[in-house]
Every structure is written in structure tokens, then in C-alpha cells.
Amino acid sequence: MPANGTPHQAAANRYERLPYRHAGHSGLRLPAFSFGLWQKFGTDHPYATRREIVLHAFDLGITHFDNANRYGPPHRAAEKFFGQVLREDLAPYRDELILSTKAGNPIGPGPYQRGGSRKSLLTSLDHSLRDLGTDYVDVFYSHSPDPGTPLEETVGALATAVTSGKALYAGISNYPPEQAHAAAGLLRSAGVPLVVHQPRYSLFDRGPELNGLMDLAARDGFGLVVYSPLAQGLLTDKYLGDSIPVGARARSSAFLSPDVIDDTYRERASALHELALERGQSLAQLALQWVLRRPQVTSALIGASSVWQLDHNVGSLDFPPFTEEELVLIDKHGVHGTAL
């Protein structure tokens, strides 16, 4: 039971807030926002806070919760945390949840704790099912391509995960377009279509536009679940001042260096911030709305360190579409490669 002894009672109106979009050509529909447990969902943050945020996300209609064996710290801690919430609060709603997990990126020194081999992927999936306390995940991803393993073997492991019933859908993450296209073809031949691809995408990282992944998604029929749409917090007002705030991610995260917060970044982010203010929204809301404007983007992955932040980000759905003039200004200041 939860610490307060009362399991969560989900909001009755939880399906009235968010739109749901088909993942590519599949029948799977995902909420416009998915919740990622990449950062701040390890044992270094209070359980009660993490639980509150996850349950509030579900009450908002966020049914898709994205995990990976690496997420923590330590590795697998985020899955164990979600498994406890599932057991104590969300078990009655398991059929309403889309749970995803990934394997392939390093989680330890052993040769089977990394890479895209059948051994690595399928063993990790079994551990994830144990930690989540569920018989299946809805989406199982290859976290990134492995040059040391034939793509046919990696794809075969994904297909086995689906045909064995341990996953309902297959996905890939961080694959460049040519490998994504090859993986989609191999999965299609195995009778297990590629449903989702998870790339990084934001105003400051337009890789999926520039490398052809957006066009490929439309042709091959998979949806994009994009991560880091706020560029690790750089597309918020947090870093617009002359100094990095105490407690900011750039002071402690291995994924964001304070060195990238330079004058060029501040100039571009400040211009986008001013445009957002003219529209009556925050920079974060503008950035999220911009990502979701693309039809190939099924869902944007967001995290949150508070319920307020979660509500604020979901509020990006409440603003009118961008005008052509606004999109020109956004293109001028949302320059690929900024702060990367």
C-alpha cells in the first residue's frame, strides 16, 4: 500500500484533456504528451514526489510512461519505482497504460549488459518485466544501434519479444534514417511492424528534419515519439539570465554542460522567449507546441520535477496555431546546433 494507506483513485475526466494520435500507420494511439522517467526518477529523489507527479500525469490523460533499464540512478531504479506505483496505485488501470522500456545501452561492465544481441536485449526485457511487476510491456525498444551486432539479430530479438507476448509493439531509438529504414523492412518481413522511433528533436536540435527521418517516418509508417523537446531545459526561461540558477540541471547533470550556455544561446533563446510572451505563453510552451505541429510526431516526451511544471507544459496545447510570420521568426532564432 502507499505510504498514506490509500491507493490512487484516477480522475474521472482523465480522457478529456489530451488529444491522442495514431503511431504511424498502426492502430496504437498515444497521448500528445508522454511521460519520461529518464531523469529525476531514481533513488536520489523522494519517492512521494515522484509518485505524486506520475499519478497526476495519469489524471491528465498521459497514459504512456517511457522507461529504460538505464534510468535511475542507479540503473533500473526508475523501473523499480514505477513497478511500485503500478502495484500500489495503478494496478486497476493497467489496461489503460502504455508502458515502454528500452535495452541496449550500457548498464554494467559485462558483455551482456550492453549492445543489441539477443542475449542482451531479451535478458534485459525479462529483468524489466520483473522490476515493473507486469507480464508484458506495450513497447520494447532497441535503445540505440549496436555496430558490433548484425541488425538482423537485433531486429530478430525485437520480433521475438513481440511474438512471445512479452511486448505488444516493437520500437527503436536513436537510429539514423538508413538503419531505421532497414530495421523497418526487417521487422515488416517478420510480421512485426516498426511502430515507433524515438529520436531527439527540438528547436535547437532539428536532426529529424535535416537528415530525412521525418520523411522516412511518413513513408515507412512509424510514428515519432520525440525526446528532449525542451533541449534539457535550455528552451525554458531558466538560463536566460547571466548566471546558472542553483539547483539547475546544468549544474549537476551528465547530459548538460554549463559550457553550452553562452552568449549565442542566450541571444537566440531570449528572442524566442520574447515571441512566446507576445503569444501569451512561456518559452517552454512555445517549444513544445512547435514540436507537436509536425504530423509525424505522435507524442512528445516530457519529464517534470513538480506537478506545477507538468500542468504548465501540458498547457502548451491551449494556444492557437503559429502564423506563417511566427514560424519564420522561430526558424530565424531556433537554430539547429545551438547549445549542442
Rank of each mutant, 00 (worst) to 15 (best):
L234T: 03
A254K: 10
Y239L: 11
L210Q: 14
D237T: 13
R219E: 15
P245V: 01
R249K: 13
Y239S: 05
V225N: 05
R206A: 04
S252C: 06
L240F: 08
R219W: 03
A231E: 11
Q198I: 13
A231N: 11
G233N: 12
R200V: 15
G247F: 08
S252Y: 07
S202R: 05
S252L: 05
L213G: 06
M214P: 01
L224W: 02
Q232V: 12
K238P: 10
A217W: 03
M214T: 05
A218P: 06
L216N: 01
P245M: 08
P229K: 04
G191L: 06
L210M: 11
V226T: 14
V192S: 01
A254H: 09
P245L: 02
S253P: 01
A231H: 14
A218L: 14
T236E: 11
R206Q: 11
S252N: 06
G191S: 00
P193Q: 08
E209D: 11
R251H: 12
D259A: 15
V246P: 00
N211I: 10
D259E: 15
L240R: 12
P208S: 10
F204S: 02
G247E: 00
G191F: 08
E209P: 03
L240P: 02
L234V: 09
A218V: 15
G247K: 05
V225T: 15
E209L: 15
Y227M: 07
G223S: 12
L210W: 08
G233V: 13
G241Q: 12
G233H: 07
R249G: 07
L235P: 02
V246H: 10
F255G: 09
Q232T: 11
D259Y: 02
L194F: 04
R249N: 12
N211W: 01
V192A: 00
Q198G: 09
L230Y: 06
V192E: 01
I244F: 09
K238M: 12
L203T: 02
D220R: 14
P208C: 07
H197L: 12
R249Y: 07
D215C: 08
D205E: 10
H197T: 12
N211A: 10
G212R: 03
A248C: 10
P208Q: 02
G207H: 05
N211Y: 04
S243W: 07
Q198L: 12
Q232S: 13
F255V: 01
I244T: 05
Q232R: 13
S257A: 10
G233L: 09
G212E: 10
G212A: 11
S253R: 00
S243P: 06
V226E: 05
R251A: 14
D259C: 02
L235G: 08
L194N: 01
